[in-house]
Nucleic acid binder design. Structure first.
Lengths: 235, 235
DNA sequence: CATTTTTGTTAACGTAAGGTTAAATGCTAT
DNA sequence: ATAGCATTTAACCTTACGTTAACAAAAATG
């Protein structure tokens, strides 16, 4: 079952600490690639697939947040853990905006890190099955191809969807007939939850409703203060 | 499953280091041919098929980059790993867009090399199966002979394609009706991913579209921010 | 029922990506 | 050297996206 060693990209400029951490992780059966700065980290990231990234925040050439942002552009799903020097509130906040899964203040207990890693891997393992690999949805009379980003109604001309439209509709479809919390879309798609992103999301809901209008069995309902619900009515 | 020992061409002028490295690789079940300079390296390369080349950069008679370029002329697919002295900055390397799969700074950890080799072999293994050996495609009313670089429409006069046109169309055809990521073409064909190569690719997309225009069942669609899709519509 | 909060809708704007064309450069073979 | 390609660079244009703003409507609050 637990076939393949999970691969971790560790980006840490302090050579001592980095090596120690790497060894520790490897002792715990992870495959670890160690990059010494953000620049190198990104190169390594591009070259391979990783199950987790651990990024130091303070680094020369390219700090951890910038690196995370670049990584996110290429891959929306890799979990990221930040290592921060002190409990800087802003740092933490900034980290979550980029879609961090966790953060740790240095110095930290290595066992805690290990637990966090395990938890994240676990989460990903169960998430992935249902979520991550599903790209085709039947939504009433529509077919959504989420990989190629198009929406077809009864085999007619496909409508092209923008990335945001596509992700939002996909998320709604994953929660078909169920509540899709506002906050979920904002953190997953917009990676930030504030007044403006929320407004932006509303704009996209409007766009989707327009697309879906031709099928009156399909509608997006609002649940005030909670989120939205993609409803597919029977014939 | 893991049938044949992978064959590695090692070109390294330092006899001590070269021998040690060769032995180390052979201990890890690779078949290794060791050449002592670029000249000899190229001779050996021509004489056999290799799964990987490891080239020292600094060598008398013919340096690693020059050798790599010659190798590339004969074979666009062999992975190449460069061994460079620590002093050399990445900037210097970037000038040589030979399509290296990786770089290693001497002195390096032999385990790291081994991991890189494994990763590269793995990558190639999954890529190669479907891809590497296919040279004829039916694209709607067209026939593409990718070996001779001919594009024929309904048995008419063949159009000659330039190398880049040909490779790009072939890559699109390999992903027929599916997304062909921009980045894939840039790394595989242009061996570099920047503003200009990207622009260049667009120019070639335009050329291909012009060729394909006579058949209105065939079109190249853009998926904004992702890549292109060669669509072949039914009758 | 007045007021605040949340959502709906449309349009405008800025930025980035892609499309097109032509000129400059590079390459190869004569 | 130079003619004839292939390819890249450049400039310029168009389209696509996403955010923001402004205003309207609906729902909650009290």
């Amino acid at each position: 079952m637990d076939e393949q060693a999970k691969k971790i990209l560790l980006v840490e400029d302090d050579p001592n600490f980095g090596t120690v951490l790497k060894d520790y992780l490897m002792m715990n059966d992870y495959e670890v690639v160690h990059a010494k700065n953000g620049m190198e980290g990104f190169e390594k990231f591009k070259k391979d697939d990783y199950d987790l990234c651990i990024l130091d925040v303070m680094m020369p050439y390219k700090d951890g947040f910038t690196l995370a942002k670049e990584i996110r552009e290429k891959n929306t799903d890799v979990p990221i853990i930040f290592l921060t020097a002190k409990a800087m509130k802003e740092d933490v906040l900034k980290g979550y905006k980029v879609g961090a899964d966790d953060y740790l203040n240095k110095p930290f207990d290595s066992e805690v890190l290990l637990m966090k890693i395990k938890a994240i891997m676990q989460r990903k393992a169960t998430e992935t099955v249902a979520d991550s690999k599903q790209f085709e949805f039947k939504i009433g009379g529509f077919d959504l191809n989420s990989k190629l980003r198009f929406l077809t109604y009864k085999g007619g001309e496909p409508t092209k969807l923008s990335p945001k439209e596509n992700e939002l509709l996909r998320l709604l479809a994953l929660h078909e007939n169920d509540l899709m919390p506002r906050e979920l879309a904002l953190t997953k798609i917009w990676r930030d939850d504030n007044y403006f992103t929320s407004r932006s999301m509303d704009v996209y809901i409007a766009k989707l409703r327009k697309y879906l209008k031709i099928d009156d069995k399909v509608e997006i309902l609002n649940i005030h203060g909670e989120g939205f619900r993609l409803v597919i009515n029977a014939e």
